[in-house]
């Protein structure tokens, strides 16, 4: 099997997912037997102009001028994988979508807010600009899932199995004591699984960093967050904004 040429690109993000990948250790070295990185800013200085088999894109699409760069990547790549919350759903960046543009520009850039190079727009997933073939969600991504998806991809699997059920189910499978049974709150009921539910297992409520499942029951979530999670009405309403700003009913 010829090595698959892969490249990594980043847009509006913290590059934490790339860092997560360099933390891989041995499995990543094994993966390198199957793939040949041709561009990877966090780990190598080379750049490429040749055809790329698989491009991994991190970060959200949050400036109109990024569209050209994204289209270029799409053009040069056989397969495009969006990875990380920002690329897949807009991620935390999309929090700003719930505010007036002028307000957040002023909050961030102050007097310079109207400088042309600071131009911005709503933070959107990469798929808002170009066709994305695969998505690996999460903030940051789960290394094991990344490895699993890439391994299947390398085998030419046209569709990689990824769960569509919520995090609750994964908590049950590993017999994590429910955050609600521990007097806490959680959003695992509406959060897309696939991570293996590590946070509740460590006693941390799920923040839905991978985004929502399809048809999340937002109304029920609000009610359960209040009645069983003890959140105030206002807080329960806003709670899911952090990672799912683009997916909520009010997006």
């Amino acid at each position: 099997m010829a090595k698959v040429k892969v490249a990594w690109f980043d847009f509006c993000c913290c590059e934490g997912c790339q860092i997560e990948m360099t933390n891989f250790g041995e499995p990543f070295l094994k993966l390198l037997e199957l793939v040949e990185p041709v561009e990877f800013r966090e780990a190598m200085s080379e750049k490429t102009t040749e055809r790329i088999n698989v491009s991994f894109i991190e970060g959200s699409f949050s400036r109109e001028e990024d569209r050209v760069r994204l289209e270029e990547i799409r053009e040069r790549s056989d397969v495009v994988v969006a990875y990380g919350a920002c690329a897949v759903t807009g991620g935390i960046n999309a929090l700003k979508n719930h505010f007036e543009m002028d307000d957040y520009k002023e909050a961030v850039y102050g007097a310079d807010k109207d400088m042309p190079h600071l131009d911005t727009q709503d933070a959107k997933p990469v798929s808002a600009a170009i066709k994305v073939d695969y998505a690996i969600p999460g903030c940051p991504i789960d290394k094991d899932e990344f490895l699993r998806v890439v391994t299947q991809l390398v085998h030419g699997t046209s569709k990689v199995y990824v769960p569509t059920y919520p995090v609750c189910l994964e908590c049950k499978l590993r017999e994590t004591v429910c955050r609600y049974d521990d007097g806490d709150h959680c959003m695992g009921q509406v959060a897309l699984a696939g991570c293996g539910a590590p946070c509740p297992a460590d006693g941390i409520p799920c923040e839905a960093c991978r985004g929502f499942v399809e048809n999340p029951n937002e109304k029920a979530l609000e009610q359960v967050l209040q009645e069983r999670g003890g959140l105030s009405a206002a807080w329960a309403k806003k709670k899911s904004q952090m990672f799912t700003a683009n997916l909520r009913g009010d997006a």
Partner: peptide, 24 residues
């Protein structure tokens, strides 16, 4: 108010449905 989360199935001692997947 159902979340369609499937927790009720997973903890059930008489539920036995499964999915089959291949993995390289």
């Amino acid at each position: 108010n159902c979340f369609s989360c499937g927790s009720c199935n997973i903890v059930c001692p008489t539920c036995y449905c499964f999915d089959i997947q291949d993995e390289w």
